[in-house]
């Protein structure tokens, strides 16, 4: 088993304001992120994702729980020195240029001036801001600020990176770039904790996911294991005007488009279905375990989730 790069155990945050009822933002959250993996953190608004991340980063004082990054207590500043963080909707001093902002953040992580210069050039190029190095941030678009946020998170070559909604404000090309960047980081052995509303993004890159709902962990595990539907197989076939009767009797969720039939059958009947299609002159394009879309899984999970957290 891989070492844990991030470990959150029993996180709890209760906000207490005099004269107002106590509000539990996070009731009990435990997350373990293996080193060198991309771990998704999912949940609806108010699920406790951002509060959990803030506790991990020492921005919010936890009511309970332990928070570790690479074995060090991340609520202490010394425990965050190998960590890069992209906040949701990152803000910067807007009078700085992109290069000045990178120089400032680079100096905070203790980089020498020469190293900051090198990393600034390579990271701005990597996020597509090479041409905007000398542009004042007040002239940056929302997407450009997001890209700069990603670049500053990677200053100092952190071993662990936390991205809070990295695709927010980005166009489709930018979203693809971010996905590719995360995959490159993983290939380089860097651990990524990704908090996102974009389920397609999570589905595309994450090895494992933790789903939060109402301040607790609603589900956690390998994304394939979570989404695969036990006992059913998905079939794609072409070359048929209609499904053979043996297939039609077994098929569910049938969709046909452009001559391609997509449906699911009981896994035990797969052999029979394949033979029937073959006999009917059809061609099997693909046979895969039936997989629920993350959107459907998410919705059903939240509908049946715990409701124990007072708000």
């Amino acid at each position: 088993m891989a070492d844990a790069a991030i470990r959150v155990l029993g996180a709890r945050k209760v906000y207490s304001v005099p004269g107002k009822p106590r509000r539990t933002a996070v009731a009990d959250v435990s997350i373990t992120v293996d080193a060198g993996t991309i771990h998704g953190l999912l949940g609806p608004n108010g699920a406790g994702k951002t509060t959990t991340l803030k506790m991990l980063l020492g921005l919010v004082k936890p009511s309970a729980g332990t928070f570790e990054v690479l074995g060090a207590d991340s609520t202490r500043p010394s425990g965050r020195r190998h960590l890069g963080f992209l906040p949701e909707q990152p803000y910067f001093p807007i009078h700085l240029t992109a290069r000045q902002a990178m120089r400032f953040y680079g100096s905070l992580v203790g980089l020498e001036a020469e190293v900051v210069k090198e990393q600034t050039a390579s990271l701005l190029d990597r996020v597509g801001l090479a041409d905007a190095e000398r542009t004042e941030l007040s002239k940056f678009s929302r997407g450009m600020l997001q890209r700069l946020g990603i670049a500053q998170a990677l200053l100092g070559s952190p071993e662990v990176v936390i991205f809070d909604e990295p695709a927010s404000g980005l166009d489709p090309v930018g979203q693809r770039d971010v996905r590719n960047l995360m995959l490159e980081l993983r290939a380089a052995g860097i651990t990524v904790l990704l908090s996102s509303h974009q389920l397609s993004e999570v589905e595309a890159v994450c090895d494992r996911v933790t789903i939060l709902n109402r301040g607790t962990v609603a589900a956690e595990g390998d994304i394939n294991a979570l989404l695969n539907v036990d006992g059913r197989t998905s079939v794609r076939a072409t070359g048929m005007d209609a499904l053979p009767s043996q297939v039609a009797s077994e098929a569910e969720d049938t969709v046909v488009s452009g001559g391609v039939w997509v449906f699911s059958v009981p896994t035990a009947a797969t052999r029979t279905v394949v033979d029937a299609i073959d006999d009917a002159g059809g061609t099997i394009v693909a046979i895969t375990p039936k997989r629920e879309s993350l959107e459907d899984y998410f919705a059903s999970l939240l509908a049946s989730g715990p409701k124990g957290v007072e708000s």
Binding site: L57, L59, P77, R81, Y91, V109, Q152, G156
Partner: peptide
């Protein structure tokens, strides 16, 4: 208010610093 402090504190800077 503008949350620019997040980028600073997340880099291992203490609040007192």
């Amino acid at each position: 208010e503008k949350r620019t402090v997040y980028n600073v504190l997340s880099k291992g800077v203490s609040r007192w610093e």
